[in-house]
Amino acid sequence: MSPSPVQFTRGVPPEEVLLVDELAKITTEVLAERPTEVFQYPRIGGNLGDERLRAALAARHGVDPRQVFVGNGSLQVLDLLSQLLLGPGGGDVVVESPTYDRAGLIFQRHGGRVLGVPLNGDGLDVERLEALVARRRPAFLYTIPDFQNPSGACASEGNRRALVDLAERHDFPIVEDTPYRRLRFRGVEQPALSELAPHRVITVGSLSKVLSPGLRVGYAIGDPGLVAGLAELGEGTYLTPTPLSQAVAARCLELGVVDSAVATAVSFLKPRHDAAVAAAREAFGDQVVAEPGGGYFLSVLARSALPEPEFLAAAADAGVRLARGSAFFPGGLPDGRLFLRLPFQALPEAEFARGVRLLADVLTR
């Protein structure tokens, strides 16, 4: 019997890192203490989210709770933020190339013209970015500086400082997406962009990778006027946030369960990360984009004359399922290259190694 296909398709947390028993216990406690409140509509009119959750997130980020808006997952928060920043006329949105494909689709849906700037192993190509923003000021720049999805790259401190300096000189906001920031396995934590330029940077965060994706808790941190605008748009979109999910998330932050979940995830994922880097280096050499040091992904920009559809079909025939690499590149793949996003978080070490060997064989046929 043939082995099951190797799935390099999604960044789903492995079941082993979900603190299911603790989440169930806390949910039961919340239901016992606040049953009517969590099963009733929350108040409408400028609702920024659960007050205790916002206070806990504000303390974690060192900001005032009035700067925190909590919505139903970070993609929905990003959708509202895009609508607010782009306005009815749309505008240019600068992104990393490659970038998170779902984010790009959101920007386009709100009239954004998505412009990609090449991404290196230590962050955006700042020279190329400066040449672009000098010609046309963007509505905003979207970046995932920590263990980026899809590449795995982590921006250096120097790259981050150069980025906020550019934003200051050319007067555009930065949207910093941070779902993987706390999942660091190696190296020293780099300063968040919001720490370097709090008045210039809007932070989008999520508890999906550090607590539970099923709770659907995402948030934005910005000035009070901006988060009030998000609340107004949110009310017109889904009326109110989800009370039960946010109450459970608040209790988890207050009791240190999120910190425990992060520690569990880091301990579990570090060996998978290290083994994945070694296997990818052996299979693809210098075509590996970056050694992440955290997060869920590493990636390969492979030299190949194969058209992407033909390569994906051959990979599927060989027993490997991949996301379409060109979907991550706003301007299309570089000539003669194929992009392979390789999530390592949900695969045992031997299964990941088998998958990359199969892909390397397809590329060398």
Rank of each mutant, 00 (worst) to 15 (best):
G187P: 12
A249L: 12
R160H: 05
V204R: 00
E176W: 01
Q148F: 06
E232A: 15
L230H: 11
E189H: 08
G218C: 00
V266T: 04
P224M: 09
P224N: 04
E189N: 08
V266S: 01
V258A: 05
R216L: 09
A192S: 13
V210W: 03
D171Y: 10
A263T: 02
D171V: 14
N159W: 11
G214T: 11
I174Y: 05
A197T: 07
A162M: 05
L233P: 11
L244H: 01
T264A: 14
R169S: 13
A162E: 12
T203R: 10
V227T: 15
A167T: 04
Y238H: 11
L215T: 00
T178W: 01
T178M: 05
G236V: 12
R272G: 04
R272W: 07
L269D: 02
A167V: 07
K270G: 00
K209P: 01
T178H: 11
A228E: 14
A153C: 12
L207Y: 03
P173Q: 11
P179N: 02
P241D: 15
P191C: 09
L166W: 08
F172Y: 09
S151C: 03
L211T: 01
L244S: 01
D274N: 09
A155L: 13
R216Q: 13
A155Y: 15
G256E: 09
R251F: 02
A220T: 04
R216I: 00
D177H: 13
G234W: 10
A261Q: 07
E232R: 13
A265W: 00
P179Q: 02
H199L: 14
A192V: 01
P198N: 10
I202C: 08
V248P: 00
P179D: 01
S208G: 14
L255K: 11
E195K: 06
Y180W: 10
C252S: 08
V188R: 15
Q148Y: 01
V258R: 07
A197G: 04
R181E: 11
V210Q: 11
R200L: 14
Q190N: 13
S206N: 01
L196V: 08
A261I: 03
N159T: 15
